[in-house]
Design a protein around this nucleic acid. Sequence first.
DNA 1: CGAGTGGTTGACCACAATCAAGACCCGTGG
DNA 2: CCACGGGTCTTGATTGTGGTCAACCACTCG
Lengths: 246, 246
Amino acid sequence: MSTQRGHLKVVSEVCGDAIACHNCGIYRLGTPLDSTEADPRLLERIAKNRRQVKRGDLLYRVGEPLNAIYAIRYGSIKTYLSTVDGRSQITGFHIAGDPLGLADLHSGHSSTEARALENTSLCEIPIDHLHQLTKDLPALQVQLTHLLSQEVQRLQGLSLLLGKKTAEERLATFLITLSRRFARCGYSSREFNLSMSRNDIGTYLGIVEETVCRILTRFQDDGLIDNQRRLIHILDSDRLAHLAQL
Amino acid sequence: MSTQRGHLKVVSEVCGDAIACHNCGIYRLGTPLDSTEADPRLLERIAKNRRQVKRGDLLYRVGEPLNAIYAIRYGSIKTYLSTVDGRSQITGFHIAGDPLGLADLHSGHSSTEARALENTSLCEIPIDHLHQLTKDLPALQVQLTHLLSQEVQRLQGLSLLLGKKTAEERLATFLITLSRRFARCGYSSREFNLSMSRNDIGTYLGIVEETVCRILTRFQDDGLIDNQRRLIHILDSDRLAHLAQL
DNA sequence: CGAGTGGTTGACCACAATCAAGACCCGTGG
DNA sequence: CCACGGGTCTTGATTGTGGTCAACCACTCG
């Protein structure tokens, strides 16, 4: 983390947006584990292609050939998959700095659907471009396994949540986790705006919209949070973390 | 698949057990995507270290330094993680050919606990050994990302199951998926022995033991399966797959 | 043969889903 | 500026799926 700070200037020159890029997947993709120096030329090549998606737009749909991977510069994306009769499960909310589509690299077609929760800017890295990059810089491949490992661990945690936690514990886990992610992005961990609806939160946590509302109200009554629609204040993160079983 | 068959002789010489090794993670680890020839010397080096664990034994526990990854030769292993108050969620049942511990490579300590469901034989590949191997053969690193991608997709499917499926759909999905995995290992897809208890199945599917029993009995009454304790016959895989929402 | 583990079944209960109605917010157009 | 409409959020009443508790059965192994 502290070693990464040193590259901020270089990175921001390439990306044009210091905050987005400091935490951006581009940056993470371009800074292999065993390299202490980011290669500016590499970053330039990675960060070249941009793509914008508007709130509600589909980035890619399940089953379609996925010929690029993405890294979010700013905004947020939900990824989800569905049963044949249309019930869907959101598998992740992705914010600035998160990579997208990594797990579909090997199969070449998308295993999830990705939709923008708000107007979002991404870096697009075509797959053949990426193949060339990994040839030039083998350490990039190591970085890909690193990112995939984190994704595996995240999904293991989600499975524990969906399989064993009560609705209350799920909401508490959600709020604490989101708070910590924002903190890592340099945003406030105590006050933030949700880009997703109550329905989305439920679809992620394996509960329904109404249950999300009821429990948020209960948290507010108990003085754990201040809940003004999409604006959330964390008032007692310790008690919340305890509720979350974290 | 058909190209892999050609290496069976070489592989079995190294592993000493054709069935186990044909499907073994060793083999998969040693056969990178872009290589049409398995390197016998590489396989020798990978397959050298063996480890046996007895039914009920712990292979590794959560949080402990994990200084090797594993590939199962024969037997089966469950991996699971737990809430602070002791509820646990099984995140996977692993059989012959499956790799273990890949997602923990980057952090160096185990994110799950692994316990043998029956007497099991593994290939142990120390991490520094693996690092040396990936240096000699960069394509091995590509193979690691490939395996991790599959794990991500498997866990996405598990999330859909845990978040959105009914108990009946969960059991049907479980049976169909297991049947297909056995088929890929060269075992019968219509008749097999479960190495895990009813309790384990429930702990994996996010339901309790009793619910597992009730639904298995119902499946039997409906002529979908023949259920003799751990011995399962699939009688109507079409209807089962339909129930599973697959 | 008896103890112990794992599996099955039943009765009852609780958490969260469903169904329904209303409140709030924001953008749009008159 | 206000009225309208649609989406999102909230709250209430009722229901149902699967959990809990408990007893019993069946197979295995010492």
